[in-house]
Write a protein that binds this DNA or RNA. Structure first.
Lengths: 113, 113
DNA sequence: AAAAGCGATTACGTTTTGCGTAATGGATAC
DNA sequence: GTATCCATTACGCAAAACGTAATCGCTTTT
């Protein structure tokens, strides 16, 4: 497993999720489209990761989805951000800012002995 | 499982890891201390999560560790950031900046049909 | 009209992570 | 000498991630 894949898995995975929530806030998000979008950002996610993820985020109540059930079992499913999802996104953004501030300081508040 | 725990698991977990790398860059990091530090930041990680994590980051070559082997099998293990770890941290910081920029724009470049 | 391609999701089996709790063990304090 | 603290290890279960392959309906090609 190469370094890039490791970074993806360990850390950037969480970034995708933020990405997804953010996009879902702007308009409907479709799995297939998201797969491409993430690749444009240099990430590399496989369907086996993304689709269960979307379902889970919906189960958490952060996304809701709809589908033209007319169009067979493989019709595209559109995901939208819920109110709860919005709160999550806001909270995460705050935490993100805090993290960045933290990264800029060299001060260590609680040094180990 | 409450919402906060979900957010932790889904997204903030990656933030901790960045936190860890960052602290390891400033000086030695000890598991126990990190557990407290993370709690100060409102996170809630259990030993069963943290210690394997530290080991894994070491296995990835991002951290190295040392221990006063004199002091028994449970002596505190000090983790430091390696050169490779530094690169990872830099890369992640860039990605972090990109993410924040992305979050500020409402423009959707590749709209789904 | 049969075949090939495309957009999109589902299914599946394996490996890796995450989690909480309990066990361990040395050092210090009382 | 035993109770407490610091710190790690052990363990067993549940969840998540991964890649690949299968599926399904629609559209284009020949």
């Amino acid at each position: 497993m190469d370094t890039n894949a490791l970074i993806n898995k360990e850390i950037l995975l969480g970034f995708w999720k933020i990405h997804i929530l953010h996009h879902a806030a702007e308009g409907p998000v479709v799995g297939q489209w998201m797969l491409q979008e993430l690749q444009h950002h240099g990430y590399n996610v496989s369907p086996g990761t993304l689709y269960p993820l979307l379902k889970r985020l919906e189960k958490h109540g952060w996304l809701r989805s709809e589908v033209d059930s007319e169009r067979g079992p493989k019709a595209p499913r559109r995901y939208y951000l819920t109110a709860a999802g919005h709160e999550v996104l806001d909270l995460v953004e705050r935490q993100l800012g805090e993290l960045q501030r933290e990264l800029q300081t060299q001060v260590r508040k609680f040094p180990p002995k």
